[in-house]
């Protein structure tokens, strides 16, 4: 099993959710994060004090998939979250040792 963490633009969430659902992925979690990569921040001014805000607001989408689904999930995210401009985000993949559904105690792939 793999955990996919995708950092995406806020307004792409609905598209990504739809693409993943269409690819057969049934669950996901989302949280607000801030970060930067190639896209560097903008300037904000508060009463003359200027701040460079490097940490841009983004959404982090986390999805857990069984290994055979990994590629289609990544494709779904890449195509739906892409705008072609700097700041589209990144996808991180890590291996997951186990998944447990709290309600039933099921483990492994069944619990996804």
């Amino acid at each position: 099993m793999k955990k996919i963490e995708a950092v995406i633009r806020h307004y792409k969430l609905e598209d990504v959710k739809k693409a993943l659902t269409d690819a057969g992925i049934v669950g996901m979690t989302v949280c607000e994060v801030r970060g930067f990569g190639r896209q560097r921040g903008h300037k904000e001014q508060y009463r003359g004090a200027e701040y460079t805000v490097d940490f841009m607001p983004k959404l982090k989408v986390e999805v857990v998939v069984d290994d055979p689904q990994l590629e289609s999930a990544i494709n779904a995210i890449t195509t739906s979250a892409q705008t072609g401009n700097v700041g589209d985000g990144k996808i991180f993949i890590s291996s997951l040792e186990d998944v447990i559904r709290i309600r039933t105690g099921e483990t492994g792939v069944e619990a996804i």
């Binding site: 801030r34 903008h42 300037k43 904000e44 001014q45 508060y46 805000v53 940490f55 607001p57």
Partner: peptide, 8 residues
């Protein structure tokens, strides 16, 4: 306005 309502 180059400002944010909710700052992190």
């Amino acid at each position: 306005h180059s400002e944010e309502g909710y700052i992190f």
